[in-house]
Design a protein around this nucleic acid. Sequence first.
DNA 1: CCTTTCGCAACTGCTTAAGTTACGAACCGA
DNA 2: TCGGTTCGTAACTTAAGCAGTTGCGAAAGG
Lengths: 142, 142
Amino acid sequence: MMKRNSRLSLALHTLSHMAQDIDRTQTSSEIADHAGTNPVVVRRVLGKLRKAGLLTSERGHSGGWRLARPSHEISLADVYLALEESLVAPRSEPEPHSCQVERHLEGRVIEILNEVEATLLDRLSATTIAETGGDEPQLENL
Amino acid sequence: MMKRNSRLSLALHTLSHMAQDIDRTQTSSEIADHAGTNPVVVRRVLGKLRKAGLLTSERGHSGGWRLARPSHEISLADVYLALEESLVAPRSEPEPHSCQVERHLEGRVIEILNEVEATLLDRLSATTIAETGGDEPQLENL
DNA sequence: CCTTTCGCAACTGCTTAAGTTACGAACCGA
DNA sequence: TCGGTTCGTAACTTAAGCAGTTGCGAAAGG
């Protein structure tokens, strides 16, 4: 059902919602229902965010997920890095090449991809989860 | 046998070799042997480059592949675009979202990915195939 | 003609990721 | 203490994408 980059989409979507209702703990099932997926997938993705210190989870009655820190202190880059994926740079280590041309070429390409990855992180760092809630009023009762 | 981004790797590798021996037409089989793959895969990838006007191919005796223009007039970006892949932006059109938060969020993410894609094209445009031959002397008998 | 070579369609794995099932561990309230 | 809730995790299933492979027709030319 879900498409490409689904983990990042799911992570951002969930955090964005949590930022809008900061006092409520949400269960994997609730999140899964809203995102159109299932609880195990949610736990897999949010588990990465927990390891990175962006979320906390608790088991048992009235357990579930909460933001580990204020939403304006969580950038999109934090989320991206927490998932330990890489959109542009290769995930696996390069294999040795017998061909001189290929070695030289690959070096140049990797150099470019690293620059691009850095650009991506820079852009993602410029936005926080707090800024992703949309134009609608927050309805906070401060 | 081949790994991620294999099509781009194969395309660049092949063009780079052709640039070093401009007078020789190479068959799919020769290219496949050198690249450790097979002729059909080579034709699939190089066919894209032909459609983009980077290569020509001829059938029959003494047929094969040649550069369609000088290697210093072919940038890495030309090759990347010829393959019609996208490393960062999603290939498929976005599906409609019922959720306001998700719509807003996705808009912001797509905006960022488009910037990053533009950066990638900019960097790839800065290098031509002629510059990717490695440090070894060209051994041309002019 | 007959061989070479590309063009292309169809099929077979292989790999990766999502989805699903199952079960144990932790937690909490009654 | 007991029983239900919720996470944690492993194992399996399903689906999609891509390289690899086979086969055959079309074009080219010696």
